[in-house]
Every structure is written in C-alpha cells, then in structure tokens.
Design a protein around this nucleic acid. Structure first.
Length: 250
DNA sequence: TAGGCCATCTGGTCCT
DNA sequence: AGGACCAGATGGCCTA
C-alpha cells in the first residue's frame, strides 16, 4: 500500500497534466474523423474498424439496446471516484501494467536466443513476443509428439543445449545426464540457414504447413529478402519453381 | 506524415 | 466498499 501511495505522489503531476488535457479535450472533430474512417474502413474491407466512440456516446447512440440494457440504464449510476480514489486506482493500474510488462520481460528471457535472432530488441514487441513464444512452444510440442522433422529436432535441441551450455559454469549438473546427447546435438550448429534448409526440404508435409504458419512472423521481410534468406545464399538458383511463394511474409 | 507500439488515465463491470 | 480486470481514449515516440 505504501508503494502505491508513493506512486500516487510521484505521478501526481503527470496525472494533473492529463486531467487538464482531458478537460480541454474537444472531441467533436475527432468524432467526425473517426466515423469517416470507420465508414472508409468498412467499405474497403480494412483490417479493423473503429467501434462507436467512447462509453458515454455509446450509451446514448447504440440502437441495439436490449430490455436488460434499458433497465440497467435506469440503475443508479455510481458517483465518480473521488480524486484520491481515482489516483490510487491509477497507481494500481500502473502497477498492474508494470507486472504485465515484467512478465513479458521474463518471457523474452525464457525464449532462446535463436528464436529472436533475426529480431532487433526494439522489434520484440509484446505481440511479437507472444507469437514467438507460441511458435516455440508449438515446435517443442511437435518434438515431444514426434511430429517434427528430424532436422528440426536436432536444430532446436542443439539450440537449447547451446543455450544451456552457457549456464553450465554456474549449474554444472544441468546437462551432465545428457552429455552424449548434448555433444551430438552440438555437432549440428544452429543457424538461420539450417532452419531455412528445413523449410526448403519439408514443403510437402503438414508439419511444414503448420510450421510455416507458426513462424511466418519471424521477420517482416520483403519477398526478395525472404528469398535470399530461404536460399541461404542469394546467388544460388531457386530450388523451387518460379511463382511458388512461401508464406513467410504475413 | 501515417502507422505501429506503448504508457497512462479513465469508467464500467465483476468479485471478494 | 474496494480491488482486479478490462477496454476505450489519448498523446508521445519512433520508423519507414
């Protein structure tokens, strides 16, 4: 609680500035813009559309109110939070969001380096982290299920053991039980081109289809860059027919 | 300059 | 009643 009180104190000036901004907000122009954008998005089949703006206008404008909603509307609306309670609520929210961000940080820490190898740190956004983690878990699951391509197994395992080998000094027992396996795995050094070669040699399996879907966001590359990456060497001839496009670019 | 990502504030809702 | 969670709104920063 003391922590939250402290945060309230430290954030007070920021909060006041935002209060002022909110009080001075003129939403009319923005409302018009949003509805225009919404119409444009709807007509052009865009990626997303804007919902009716803000909670309060929705209450007034939504034509799809049910009886339950109408009854609820008549329910006594709770008074706005006091300034003190609003500030403590804000502080709790900041604390909650910070915890979420901490969790994202630890998730990034858990992902082996090869998963993020083609990503700059600044590109490891929350959504990217979630997707990479999801893909990584799926690839591990495939290995456990025996569905993964042999090359993928050795590639992923060697990556994991190589990552683990960094911990060996501090945790000497970590890999002892798997020494031979580790050595065997390490004999296959992971690299992007290894993974790419796997992708290039497994095009017919359903596992490949799943993998491609899973890893399609590994890097938002241009098609030319994707081709170069897939080739491992951009001067080599393409191993597949012209016009065949791997779904690497999402 | 538009678009993506993020932090923050805020009000609503649910739960204890 | 108060906290947790959620989603919308807003503005800042950065990049293509």
């Amino acid at each position: 609680m003391a922590k939250i009180e402290n945060q309230v104190a430290t954030q007070e000036s920021v909060g006041d500035a935002v209060d002022d901004n909110n009080n001075n907000n003129s939403n009319d122009d923005k409302n018009q813009t949003d509805s225009q954008i919404s119409k444009t998005a709807a007509s052009s089949g865009a990626k997303y559309q804007l919902r009716p703006r803000s909670v309060h206008p929705r209450r007034r404008c939504d034509s799809e109110w049910s009886l339950e909603d109408t009854l609820r509307q008549h329910k006594q609306r709770p008074p706005p939070l006091s300034r003190y309670r609003r500030k403590t609520a804000n502080a709790r929210e900041r604390y909650r969001m910070r915890q979420i961000n901490t969790a994202f940080e630890s998730l990034r820490g858990v992902l082996p380096s090869w998963v993020c190898s083609r990503r700059a740190a600044s590109e490891m956004t929350k959504i990217t982290t979630l997707r990479l983690a999801s893909a990584y878990i799926r690839s591990l699951q495939d290995i456990l299920d025996g569905k993964a391509h042999q090359d993928t197994c050795s590639w992923v395992l060697s990556s994991i053991f190589q990552d683990a080998s960094h911990l060996q000094e501090s945790q000497p027992d970590l890999c002892d039980g798997n020494h031979s396996k580790t050595q065997q795995a390490l004999s296959h050094t992971p690299s992007d081109s290894d993974f790419v070669s796997f992708l290039c040699t497994s095009t017919e399996s359903t596992v490949f289809q799943d993998s491609m879907e899973s890893f399609s966001y590994l890097s938002p590359m241009s098609e030319a860059e994707a081709m170069a990456l897939l080739l491992g060497n951009e001067h080599q001839p393409r191993p597949w027919t012209e016009g065949h496009h791997f779904p690497l670019v999402s």
